[in-house]
């Protein structure tokens, strides 16, 4: 097993592929955190997005409807978090955890109520790989980057848009200011509450779509617990990427790489029990977290509710 094994184009293609939902969820969380709210319910939002997206796609047969429904469902959870955290100044962490549990419970309940118990789980067609005409013929890079399903390309576009939005638009500047010093932003006439709600909604939608991509890209079916910690990992990716869109993209690819490698290793090495291979990504992110937290500087107003008339 030489070095080629680790740089096998198929592993790299898998990396981009499996990282896609992570990238998207991390973008959503990044936007939310930039506005000063810590959303720890991503895992629950993704679970809800996964089941709603799957069900709507299964029933209507159109994946687009599924994606839209998933976005709306997760945004509703975001709205609850927003009402509690922004309007009522409730502790974001506890509300977030409760919403995470709620999302998890609700998603499997919805699946059971619509589908019921079946011996064979219903399937939907997954997004097919799209080969970009000329680029996919490029040596190495072509197979690596340009033969993945459509959402993977779109998601990279989302990263670029998020970057442009945050750093090259006036609203992006206002969002950043809101996450750092809401009092300052407010005294300059920036609608802090509305901005935070908007970020939470849009971020929640991205997270919901990310959840819907799990059945639509990876498995074709829904199974309980299919999010498998990806929400939490996205949360860490935001920190690892230092609240910068392209930083989180890199982090997500790194995780995607380990996941793809783990899968590949499991196929190659039969002597190690599969459970240990499956553990690998989780152990890996814990190790990466050490790097992520070193010197990380979160938006200063993160976790702090803003009350205009509170006297400092």
């Amino acid at each position: 097993m030489g070095w080629q094994f680790f740089f096998d184009p198929e592993v790299l293609r898998q990396m981009v592929f499996v990282a896609t939902p992570l990238v998207l969820a991390a973008q959503g969380e990044l936007l939310i955190q930039r506005s000063g709210i810590l959303n720890v319910s991503i895992e629950g939002m993704m679970a809800l997005g996964a089941v709603v997206g799957f069900l709507v796609a299964y029933v209507t047969g159109a994946k687009l409807f599924g994606l839209v429904a998933a976005a709306l469902a997760a945004a509703i959870l975001g709205l609850v978090l927003g009402y509690a955290a922004i309007t009522l100044h409730a502790p974001q962490l506890t509300i977030g955890l409760a919403l995470f549990i709620l999302g998890t419970g609700l998603s499997s309940l919805l699946y059971r109520m619509v589908i019921g118990l079946r011996f064979l789980p219903p399937m939907i067609a997954t997004f097919p790989a799209v080969e970009v005409p000329v680029l996919s013929e490029l040596p190495i890079v072509g197979r690596w980057l340009f033969r993945v399903p459509a959402p993977s390309y779109v998601v990279i576009g989302v990263v670029a848009i998020m970057h442009l939005f945050l750093f090259h638009t006036t609203i992006g500047l206002r969002v950043r200011a809101t996450g750092e010093n809401p009092r300052c932003a407010d005294s300059l006439g920036i609608p802090v509450t509305r901005l935070r709600y908007a970020c939470l909604m849009i971020g929640g939608m991205l997270i919901g779509v990310a959840g819907a991509l799990l059945p639509m890209m990876l498995t074709g079916t829904y199974s309980e617990g299919m999010v498998g910690g990806r929400g939490w990992i996205s949360l860490m990716l935001v920190i690892l990427g230092r609240w910068v869109p392209f930083g989180t993209l890199m982090g997500a690819w790194l995780f995607g790489y380990v996941d793809a490698l783990q899968y590949r290793l499991g196929l190659t090495i039969q002597t190690v029990p599969p459970q240990f291979m499956l553990m690998l990504p989780y152990v890996f992110v814990v190790l990466v977290a050490i790097r992520a937290y070193r010197g990380a500087q979160a938006p200063q107003a993160l976790l702090k509710p803003y009350d205009r008339e509170a006297r400092a």
Binding site: A84, A90, A98, I101, T104, L109, E224
Partner: peptide, 22 residues
């Protein structure tokens, strides 16, 4: 469904937290 109990419990907690915050 077994997982529904999560929903019910989480709902109770969220409603109570919201009311308390209010």
């Amino acid at each position: 469904p077994a997982s529904a109990v999560f929903l019910v419990q989480a709902l109770v907690v969220i409603v109570i937290m919201v009311v308390e915050a209010l």
